[in-house]
């Protein structure tokens, strides 16, 4: 390789290195802001003030869903296996919403420590399966998906 080309190659590598280091530093600094949601434990830890908007993520606790009969109002608990937060919501839920499902709620805590959600999103996991297989697994004692029990909280919801 000629010296000029070597110089240009070094320049290209230096650009890649420089930008990489800059991005790494920027992302470390922004780490907190890039977190899309907080878990119930993090909410308890940080003592979120009432009225401050944030996103809360966790699993819908089994048996905690309480629907009103005459409106869309719904009350349920989200858990990360350690702490729980009560959520109030009054709008249409995504199709995947069910007990044991991972969800993300956007809203704020009220004065009683109840999370008033403006929006509830269902978080899909990365597992794909035919329905027959899911049924067979369940029969064999490996519940998953809509039947996922909150004993086995995926690591991403854990603090």
């Amino acid at each position: 390789m000629t010296p000029t080309r070597k110089k240009r190659l070094t320049m290209v590598l230096l650009i890649l290195l420089g930008v990489g280091v800059a991005a790494a530093i920027a992302m470390t600094a922004l780490q907190e802001n890039l977190l899309y949601f907080l878990s119930p434990s993090e909410v308890a830890e940080q003592k979120m003030p009432a009225g401050k908007q944030f996103r809360l993520g966790g699993l819908v606790k089994d048996g905690s869903v309480n629907r009103a009969t005459d409106s869309l109002k719904i009350r349920f608990l989200v858990t990360d296996g350690l702490k729980e937060v009560e959520i109030n919501y009054d709008d249409i839920l995504p199709d995947l919403f069910r007990e044991g499902q991972g969800i993300i709620a956007i809203g704020s805590l009220d004065n009683n420590g109840v999370f008033q959600a403006d929006e509830v999103l269902a978080k899909h996991d990365e597992e794909y399966m035919a329905p027959e297989v899911a049924d067979a697994l369940e029969k064999a004692g490996h519940p998953r998906g809509n039947k996922a029990s909150t004993d086995s909280v995926p690591s991403e919801y854990k603090p």
Binding site: L16, V19, A23, M27, Y36, F37, K123, D125, Y128
Partner: peptide
């Protein structure tokens, strides 16, 4: 030059679902 600078975004896209809590699911 601009294309080279933007390469840094590729690992960020790929690992974003592992490094941060995202709504987007992990790698299947």
């Amino acid at each position: 030059l601009l294309a080279l600078v933007g390469v840094v975004n590729l690992p960020i896209i790929h690992y974003s679902v592992e490094w941060w809590n995202t709504l987007h699911q992990g790698t299947t």
